[in-house]
Every structure is written in structure tokens, then in C-alpha cells.
């Protein structure tokens, strides 16, 4: 297995301290832990939305900071816990990521990805009128349609009921497995982690803070 992402002695004062961590290509990694333990920050570092005070994030052998940030984010794409809704229709929202990445997509591809995410709504519906759970599924469909190398998903189904959330994630993870995508997902769902994850990382708030104090 090749390493797709390597975290090297990451440190952000009072938030995060991680020694060495490697993510294998095509693996599914589940991040669990209390809120405030640095899970979202870790995803943001990998997406290069934030730079650590010390240490480095390496993507395919090169520091993320040495790469063009826009191209990098189209390859290591992140979906935030609060889904981002752009002005416009469901279709425009779902294809937004692919448009940014310059990827040509057809309506049937959009419908297919929405079906996988269990969101069957008219494509021309105004995205702002969707419910919280529907917006989350729309955001998931958006990153899937971008066909990236790595997907960083921050509690992607937190607004859905447990049953639906599990079904949606299982469908998404099945697609990612099939295509050999690497997925790093923040979740509180233990059974999902046990059934799907190659690695489960328990992010402990106290450990993160103590680690920080030892620096």
C-alpha cells in the first residue's frame, strides 16, 4: 500500500498535537472523539485551509504547502459539517464542485449520484428550500461528483436520523471502495466505524491538550 497522506509532527497550540500518522491509499479512516478534540482542524489541515504552527502535511510525497492550493483542494476535497448551500438550484449546487474542477458532468450523472446519496428531488428545486438533512446529502453528492482522490467528510450525516444516515454513508463508502478512493470521515457512529473503517483514530481531547503541553 502507498501512503497518500502523511502527517508529520503536527502542532497547533491548544488545539492539536499529532506525532506521525500515515493514511494509506484507498483506505477508509474514521475519526472519532469528543468535540473540541481537533477532528475538524485535522481535516482542514489536510485540505490546506489551515497551516499548522509546526509540522507538515504531505500528499503523495510532497508538502501540501508546496502545491497549488486550488488544485490540491480539488484532489483532496472536504465537505463541512454544516453543508454549504450556494445560491441556485439543487443541480447547480451539486455540479458546483465539478464545475470548479473543470469536470464535465451530465444530468444523468448528477441524478445517479443523488440517487446513491438517497436524495431524489427535482433537479430544478431551489437548494435553499431543502431541509438540513437534504442539504447534507446534496453536499455529499457534490464532493462525490468531483471524483477526487481523497474525500474529507466532517460528520456528513449529523442532521439525518441514524437509520437513513447509515444507509447514505454505506452507499457513499461503497462507491468510494469500488473506485479506490481514500476517505477520512469524522463520525460518532461506532458500528459504521467497525464495519467500514480500515483504521479508527480516537482523537482524545485530553491527549491532544497534554501532547500540546509537552511540546
Amino acid at each position: 500500500m502507498t501512503a497518500v497522506l502523511e502527517l508529520k509532527n503536527i502542532y497547533i497550540s491548544g488545539i492539536l498535537s499529532m506525532p506521525e500518522w500515515t493514511v494509506e491509499e484507498g483506505s477508509v479512516v474514521c475519526l472519532t472523539g469528543e468535540s473540541g478534540s481537533g477532528k475538524t482542524t485535522l481535516l482542514r489541515l489536510m485540505n490546506n485551509l489551515r497551516t499548522p504552527e509546526r509540522g507538515d502535511v504531505v500528499y503523495r510525497g510532497e508538502s501540501v504547502q508546496s502545491k497549488d492550493p486550488l488544485t490540491l483542494r480539488q484532489r483532496i476535497v472536504m465537505s463541512a459539517q454544516t453543508p454549504v448551500v450556494f445560491p441556485g438550484t439543487l443541480k447547480e449546487n451539486v455540479r458546483r464542485g465539478a464545475d470548479i474542477a473543470g469536470r464535465d458532468v451530465t444530468d444523468s450523472e448528477i441524478q445517479d449520484v443523488l440517487r446513491r446519496c438517497r436524495l431524489e428531488k427535482p433537479l430544478e428545486e431551489e437548494a435553499s428550500t431543502l431541509s438540513g438533512g437534504e442539504k447534507q446529502r446534496m453536499a455529499l453528492a457534490r464532493v462525490l461528483l468531483m471524483d477526487p482522490d481523497v474525500l474529507l467528510l466532517d460528520e456528513p450525516t449529523s442532521a439525518l436520523d441514524e437509520e437513513t444516515g447509515k444507509k447514505v454513508l454505506e452507499a457513499v463508502l461503497a462507491v468510494c471502495r469500488e473506485k479506490g478512493k481514500t476517505v477520512i470521515i469524522v463520525t460518532h457512529d461506532r458500528s459504521l466505524a467497525e464495519n467500514w473503517a480500515d483504521t479508527v483514530v480516537e482523537m482524545n481531547e485530553i491527549a491532544a491538550k497534554e501532547g500540546a503541553a509537552h511540546e
Binding site: 476535497v77 450556494f86 458546483r96 464542485g97
Partner: peptide
């Protein structure tokens, strides 16, 4: 949130 949401997808 919306601006960062677009940056996350690789928008300039």
C-alpha cells in the same frame, strides 16, 4: 462558511 465551503472544493 460559504466562502470556506467554496475554497474546500478548490475554488479560487
Amino acid at each position: 462558511d460559504q466562502i470556506e465551503g467554496a475554497l474546500m472544493l478548490g475554488a479560487s
